[in-house]
Write a protein that binds this DNA or RNA. Structure first.
Lengths: 110, 110
DNA sequence: GTGGGTGGTTACCTCAAGGTGAGTGAGCAG
DNA sequence: CTGCTCACTCACCTTGAGGTAACCACCCAC
């Protein structure tokens, strides 16, 4: 179960990490799941304004394959699916904090 | 002189930072300029295997516009152009270190 | 029956990032 | 003379990520 979409072709760690978070909305999904753990699909759609259902689905599937998010299906009617960060996802988010601080200080306030 | 390609439309700091480093080869360029300061164009082309001249040029231009790299032209024959990280670029690279460590530990060695 | 909410799937389309290959013009090696 | 280096520029083309919209089964409230 390799992490990343092009295993074995990474030049360095940043290159590899960029591949995992490279989707247009992935860091926003991670940010949302960090702020609101165990979110349902519809909640995420509202938490990440602008993302379409198709793209949200595919991003979540990729993050799940990479071991970043956990997908829990409850066999109920109506169906319920909850997404949460795995420990790996939590560690990824922690590694993203300095980048977020940099962006806030130098891009948003720049 | 705004930093980033879509000023004013960022949701959060990570979103903004991702825009600055969003090019396919930008983090590799930053990594190369950190390891080999004041590199010439041809050196960068060799340090970032696979990048084409056109894309390397445009990525360097964008990084220059964002205040990440400095471009120094020496009016000589043959022409000489040296690229280096600005203080802002150095701080960006510092903010990328944890992400690089994460990628090395969890993707490359995963 | 109509509409809404649940969590998706499917087919189709767009568009911009990136790749390809040629050209530039001065100088230098062979 | 040929070809290479330097640091690009230009015109063209490809590709795939992402966007659009329809559709699915199921249930509830109105």
């Amino acid at each position: 179960m390799p992490v990343g979409r092009r295993p074995g072709s990474y030049v360095c760690g940043i290159d590899a990490a960029m591949d995992v978070i490279g989707g247009k909305w992935k860091v926003l999904i991670l940010w949302a799941l960090d702020a609101y753990p165990s979110s349902r699909f519809g909640e995420l759609r509202r938490l990440v304004p602008g993302v379409t259902e198709k793209v949200l689905t595919s991003h979540l599937r990729e993050l799940e394959q990479d071991g970043i998010v956990h997908r829990e299906v409850y066999e109920e009617v109506p169906p319920r699916v909850e997404y949460s960060l795995t420990p790996l996802g939590t560690s990824l988010n922690a590694a993203l904090v300095p980048l977020g601080v940099w962006g806030r200080e130098h891009v948003l306030e720049g």
